[in-house]
Design a protein around this nucleic acid. Structure first.
Lengths: 191, 191, 191, 191
DNA sequence: AATGAATGAGCATTCATTCAT
DNA sequence: GATGAATGAATGCTCATTCAT
């Protein structure tokens, strides 16, 4: 029962992610989300009393999916270089498989509709990233770059690659592109 | 007279850039744009018969400002390395000075409200960029990277820096940050 | 429940008939129709998504009321003369009792807002009229007059009478006026 | 100069007649009338300070044209029968030649936008009609029909014919239709 | 819990009218 | 006189939200 409930909420949120990404927050009526999710207008407000609740839930969901994908297969014993390469590939492959969530995070990461609380909660999932890069700096494997810049740099560059693939510019040769681009970013960052 | 007219249109567009960036397209009522621009609601529609016309004009304006800023001080005789360094700095400094236009381009570059025509028209201004990087590849100064990826890569990385500064993370030390980051990107890209 | 729903739609349509007749289609704001019908503006659009839907529904309703009124008491066995006299009286009495619907049909019968579909659907109800007059011609009781002209002639003349009474020129003596006018039209048409 | 002025006003009024007829009063923006008349928006308001002035002028013009057309060729010495036949033909031919003005009068004859004053002024032109029919009744050539009904009856029947022709149902055979229809109406009315 | 009718504030857009040039 | 930019009230329509069933 609780599962059904959660599943119903999940369907709504998934639908919202897709539609917000396609048409924007104000461009997507709640009635349309309800219709696409196969429920009634009233039911949507039963689960999410305000439209903003929806976008916050959507954001939290997408971010936690992203965090889980990033962590996959990271070997604690591996070198910094190995970890970074793994992250780089994880991120690109996740973005390609989940373009709606990827774009959603990009678009709404700075949105005023995402509450501070949601923002902070989701941040917790990403602490491990900073640790990895800090460790790299300590071990002199990565250049000393002002505190959080490393992470942002890594992610923005990564996004450039995902965009290309999502927009269909290099649909084949994905693995090759992952490797080539990793060399690009890594040669710049590493010592 | 013609100047007054153009100036009035310009005021409206500038206001729209700011508000669209802050609140989004659907989140910004035309009535609010008019009020902020100091004109009546009817006048706005006198100049821009549809709300979409406004966003297209805004996009065209921002892009042409950007193009002009990029070109400034590029020395034809300079090396690729010199040109790239100049572009890098131009871009960051322009973004910092014009955060509204910078964010506007980021947000609405992929927007369905920007018409194909506007998109194409604005693209013409940026041809010189590809030429610079192509020349770099021909002269073996830059790695051979799939066609347009170089430009996107360069820009996305640049954006990461602008974001930091706009969001106030490294407000001082801007020139230092420009240099440091250029090394990061360029060591990766150059041979 | 279904009755309530239909009743609500009916109230709206009746109100629209009256107001469109008084002030015209463009002269009647939907907000005013809603207020007069005792509902909110939004509710009106819940039932009639476009203003044009309202006028089409109104037209269909008025026409079907008219058709029903016309048929009342027509005796299949009666002579042409008897049938025509009955129609003549039915029409005038209906027009007097339902001046809003009568005027509405007159004003909007040729309106561009009435869709072809509505026009065709309502026409089906009036087939029996042509049959009556055609039968009259076959039986040599009515002059041979170019096809549909008979019906139009009969109706336009009838309207002249209704107008007089509605506008208060001969409020008493209605039955007398019906008889007198029938002689006028019938002596011209019949052989 | 005065002629130019009158001609300019006349152009505006003629344009208004056409557009009001096609799209209705509220359906025709003054700006559109101005454009079609080849003048600026402001100029229209110079000549007709309010939109209602335009419709009143248009009504007065159309009615005076109609009155003039009706009178043409009426022989004072002719019999009632001859005069009626002449009127009947004059009216139909005028309606066919000036469908815009004809429809305009039909549509706006009962409009609330036509002021009492305009209505009364135009009425003066039509006094001769009543005289003709009254004379007919006195001479026992026409049935005694309640006062003004005769005129209305005559006109409404006439309109039925004009409509048919304007709408293209009997485009040829116009003279024949005039004769046939006159017999229809006259046999009913005359003694 | 689920539905969908009802609400009314809000928005893009239109248009009669004014007025500076 | 002529122009057309400027105005702002008004209008068709949308949509988040409520609530009776």
């Amino acid at each position: 029962m609780s599962d059904d409930l959660n599943e119903k909420k999940a369907v709504i949120v998934r639908t919202a992610v897709r539609l917000f990404t396609e048409k924007g927050f104000h461009g997507t009526p709640t009635s349309f989300i309800a219709k696409e999710a196969g429920i009634s207008n009233g039911t949507l407000f039963h689960y999410f009393p305000m439209k903003e609740d929806l976008i916050n839930s959507a954001y939290a969901m997408a971010k936690s999916h992203l965090a889980a994908a990033l962590k996959a297969g990271i070997d604690r014993e591996s070198t910094i270089d190995g970890k970074a390469r793994c992250l780089w590939g994880n991120l690109i492959r996740w973005g390609i498989k989940n373009p709606d969530e990827f774009r959603f995070i990009e678009q709404f990461g700075c949105s005023p509709y995402i509450s501070k609380i949601t923002e902070e909660e989701t941040m917790n999932d990403f602490g491990f990233l900073e640790e990895i890069f800090m460790e790299g700096m300590r071990k002199d494997a990565i250049k000393k770059i002002p505190d959080t810049l490393v992470v942002e740099w890594f992610f923005e560059a990564n996004s450039a690659i995902i965009h290309r693939i999502i927009e269909g510019k290099n649909p084949e040769k994905i693995d090759e592109l992952i490797d080539v681009s990793f060399e690009l970013i890594w040669r710049g960052m590493s010592k």
